[in-house]
């Protein structure tokens, strides 16, 4: 079983703060992390390998420092990692990103299951997985919360939808995106960390992938960000004063006046 996990290095958002003076993101002290949703993808890949044997290859597109993220995933079970890095890849939207990833996966030749996280925590689009599937011309299942069985070229999975779960069967090779409910990612192991320290992480550039520079990075992107701004929150609310009982009474009165709730 050849498993490919696609992942991205993102700023750890728990510490994303806005400088109230300049209204910009405060980057100081923000460590880059592996996109949390991708850690579930990796863990699931490693579990499939442990259950059915095989190899887990992690792929990331990003700047040279994304190598850190790939070393980290080697310490938690990936067998190999490849970094797709080239100045030509910068500024890619999901279309250009999935094109680049698809070219890299095609270069690997052998793949049975490709796993992505449901979305990244910086871009939040969740589009790379499904777009990648189309570019590889293989089936796709989103929001997988459980891999039930892999057998005879087919995989049976459970996926989350708004009001429940669907059990879906898909032929291999296939692309899936996973949700956090699927597993609890393991921490690195000492042997994994030792392996990660010495691992050679190849860097594939645009030339090595043989991609048309007009298909990757900003030039290959169909969308452009033309403006960024901070959501304005205007505070026009009212803090209800008084003792507990009068607070409750005043709230209920106000809601009734506004006909939000019924009653006398």
């Amino acid at each position: 079983m050849n498993i490919v996990v696609c992942l991205k290095q993102v700023p750890g958002t728990t510490k994303v703060n806005i400088d109230p003076q300049t209204n910009t993101l405060v980057r100081q002290g923000i460590k880059n992390i592996v996109n949390p949703f991708d850690t579930y993808a990796l863990e699931e890949g490693v579990r499939i390998k442990e259950r059915y044997e095989g190899k887990v290859t992690a792929i990331s597109m990003g700047p040279p420092q994304a190598e850190e993220a790939l070393r980290e995933v080697i310490s938690t079970g990936a067998d190999e990692a490849i970094l797709l890095s080239d100045s030509a890849f910068a500024g890619a939207d999901t279309l250009a990103t999935s094109h680049t990833l698809a070219r890299a996966i095609n270069k690997l030749k052998q793949y049975d299951i490709i796993i992505c996280g449901r979305q990244t925590i910086d871009g939040d689009t969740g589009q790379v997985g499904p777009e990648l599937a189309e570019m590889l011309g293989i089936p796709f299942v989103a929001y997988v919360s459980k891999i039930e069985e892999i057998d005879n070229g087919y995989m049976r999975v459970k996926r989350m939808v708004e009001d429940g779960h669907e059990v879906i069967e898909t032929p291999l090779p296939t692309v899936i995106t996973v949700v956090k409910e699927i597993n609890v990612p393991r921490l690195p192991s000492l042997r994994g960390l030792a392996k990660a320290r010495s691992a050679v992480i190849p860097i594939w550039t645009a030339q090595e992938l043989g991609v048309d520079k007009n298909m990757v990075g900003l030039s290959g992107s169909a969308t452009r960000v033309i403006r960024v701004f901070f959501p304005q929150r205007v505070h026009h609310g009212e803090i209800l004063q008084g003792d507990l009982e009068s607070q409750a009474n005043s709230l209920i009165d106000k809601l009734r006046e506004a006909k939000i709730i019924s009653g006398s």
Partner: peptide, 22 residues
């Protein structure tokens, strides 16, 4: 929706056009 977020990106990828989520 979970369906929209799952299949619309595939449509965009086939048509090689841009898609903005959410």
């Amino acid at each position: 929706t979970s369906l929209g977020r799952s299949f619309i990106p595939r449509v965009a990828a086939i048509l090689k056009t841009g898609l903005t989520a959410d």
